[in-house]
Design a protein around this nucleic acid. Structure first.
Lengths: 133, 133, 133, 133
DNA sequence: GTGGTCTAGACCACC
DNA sequence: GTGGTCTAGACCACA
């Protein structure tokens, strides 16, 4: 996995985990990869994974069964959505709107680009399905 | 002026300057506030303003007339737009699209919220005009 | 290391780094001396080294692996050459030609002196090789 | 006249004066433009011209006839050449050679570009002659 | 340990 | 007055 360098790696790992939860790849209630395993997979220091997991515990997306490891909360999707939605509307969107306004980018242009983005995502999905066959 | 604390102050100052240029409040070719004056106004160390101005000089948005101060380039708006547009499409937009996709936010909802944002901006403008009466 | 005092120290440090890259002494992809270490070695304030490194990052010659330090880009040599060549042909050479023209110095004389210069450089190289024996 | 912004203006003015002397446009022994007149012509603060003249006096290129103004020395060309040659060989050339060496630019390439430069200068001369007709 | 940011204050050349 | 450079020292988040 490649990391952007304008954002802390642990934040990107947290996003990565949430992604997998929202997309249903990691089902609610199940045990999550151990710190060490994920660290190996992402080629990252375990401490960094730990920070990401800590962060997600503070959001109640993950919880700790003593001695059994970390699990995804039963309402994990809901929790993630809540946090991300709030973040999106409070922090990201105003910035985006300001840019659109000053750079004279119409919402129609955004919508058009978005539909292209969605196409790309759907292709990915199909690709993954075939991979698993 | 208030600064967010999740972004370096000098970056926010640079954005502030670009904003004023894009909105036409600071016309192309004109002299910009001196390092020291802006530092006093923003209650910030002159070095911090200097860093922001340095950055804008490296983008050719500002240029230096020796001994006379810094001036906004004749094609300053164009330069700013170019930089901001690139930044917006490369860095911001993909992130926004991913959020929209995963959080199931439709482009129509975005468009609606945007039109409200624009109303707010227009009110601000009128407010400023009245102030000057 | 000695610094000329008609040029900013941080610029000279940046040149020093580029020199080492172009000469192959510091290979592409490798970690570069930390800000603090180079500051100690050059007997200079860390901020000054930082400025040099900042500049080289803006040229994409250096990049940052968070928490691990700064590394020379894979195409670092190319990037440095591009920047230096442009600088040389746009800024230095016209000045040199004007001097040659007005002072009546022939290109043959230049060529002759250059071959002496190259000899000196080659001796330096051999000297270093012997040092390492 | 346009000034480069990487060199002090008074230095550029001094060069401008030397240029005119070396090219024979301003003959040895003659009175030189007054500080004020040159300042107006170059659209520059008189103090700045003054500094340039001061500098040239320190090189014995100009000298002061009390109450009559500044004059170009009888051996002005020689003095200018001496200073510029020294400067060229001591300061400029080593830098140029280093660049040529590291960027792998051959003296032949330099010679070729120089001959083009000379062509350009000769055209200018003819152009000026015709202007004065 | 790493880079990055900010402040405070001094000093400089230039116009 | 202008920008620009440098130092010293503090503090931070990150790995």
């Amino acid at each position: 996995m490649e990391f952007k360098d304008n954002e802390a790696i642990y934040v990107q790992i947290a996003s990565f985990v949430c992604d997998n939860i929202l997309r249903g790849r990691w089902p609610e209630g199940e045990r999550i990869l151990s710190v060490r395993d994920l660290a190996v997979e992402l080629q990252v220091n375990p401490n960094t994974v730990m920070r990401a997991y800590d962060f997600l515990q503070s959001l109640d997306v993950l919880y700790n069964k003593r001695g059994h490891g970390l699990f995804i909360a039963e309402n994990g999707i809901e929790k993630v959505k809540k946090y991300y939605k709030n973040n999106f509307f409070e922090n990201h969107l105003p910035e985006v709107f300001k840019n659109m306004y000053l750079l004279e980018i119409s919402p129609e242009e955004i919508a058009k680009k978005y539909s292209e983005f969605v196409k790309g995502e759907n292709l990915k999905k199909k690709g993954n399905k075939n991979e698993n066959k």
